[in-house]
């Protein structure tokens, strides 16, 4: 049971907890900065999940070494290639979100969600 937990479920549980922390921050926190931080935590959880899926025991980086053949000696390159772009895209989406926050803060002088909603009604 214990080895099964360590090799199988535990890392997925931790990633799931990280993901749920992100959702919790997005739907229950009022401050917009905290929402953006929670969104980043969710993205990191997804990235770690993909990277964990690409692992192989006893394998090395997907840089081909002369004399070492066979797919079982190199870890899966596909999640790395996908997540590499996901990291940079998450950076630029964070930039756009922060720019929107700067505009909101200049317009309403607030970053708390209820205050901004009240300001929109007036």
């Amino acid at each position: 049971m214990m080895e099964n937990l360590m090799s199988g479920y535990l890392i997925y549980w931790l990633i799931g907890v990280l993901f749920v922390i992100g959702i919790h921050g997005i739907i229950q926190k009022n401050n917009f900065i905290k929402k953006i931080m929670a969104m980043n935590i969710m993205q990191v959880a997804v990235i770690i999940f993909f990277l964990v899926l690409g692992q192989k025991t006893g394998a090395t980086l997907p840089i081909l070494i002369h004399g070492v053949e066979g797919a079982e000696n190199y870890i899966n390159p596909l999640p790395h290639a996908l997540m590499l772009t996901a990291i940079v895209v998450s950076l630029s989406t964070t930039g756009v979100a922060l720019a929107l926050l700067l505009r909101i803060q200049k317009h309403f002088d607030e970053l708390e969600e209820p205050d901004v909603l009240r300001g929109m009604d007036q």
Partner: peptide
């Protein structure tokens, strides 16, 4: 849902068997 996912480091798991061996070879 974590119970249905492959073991960590399993070389025969689903993500490591279809297209990625062809890329590496």
């Amino acid at each position: 849902a974590a119970a249905g996912l492959p073991d960590v480091g399993d070389p025969n798991s689903a993500p490591s068997t279809h297209v990625s061996p062809r890329y590496i070879e």
